[in-house]
Amino acid sequence: MSKVIKVLGTGCPKCKAMTQVVTDVISKHNIDATVEKVEDIIEIMKYNVMTTPALLVDDTICIKGRVPSQDEVFTFLSNNE
């Protein structure tokens, strides 16, 4: 099943770095997933996060407030398949 990944962040360098890591992992491992960037602060606040960037996989928050490594993102994406 295709996974829905969301990157929450207002567009600061860290948020861009996170998006980059996620897209790299997806293309590297051929993962079936869509990446959505949520940049509107009003939208971001609906997810109840206080620190950006945040990573959501299928509406579960995996990471808040920091840029993850590729391996870490890969474990999140390869879980529960």
Binding site: G9, T10, C12, C15, I41, I44, M50, T51, T52, G65
Partner: peptide, 9 residues
């Protein structure tokens, strides 16, 4: 925290 976190915080 970087300045972009100030609003969510």
């Amino acid at each position: 925290f970087c300045s972009c976190s100030s609003v969510p915080l």
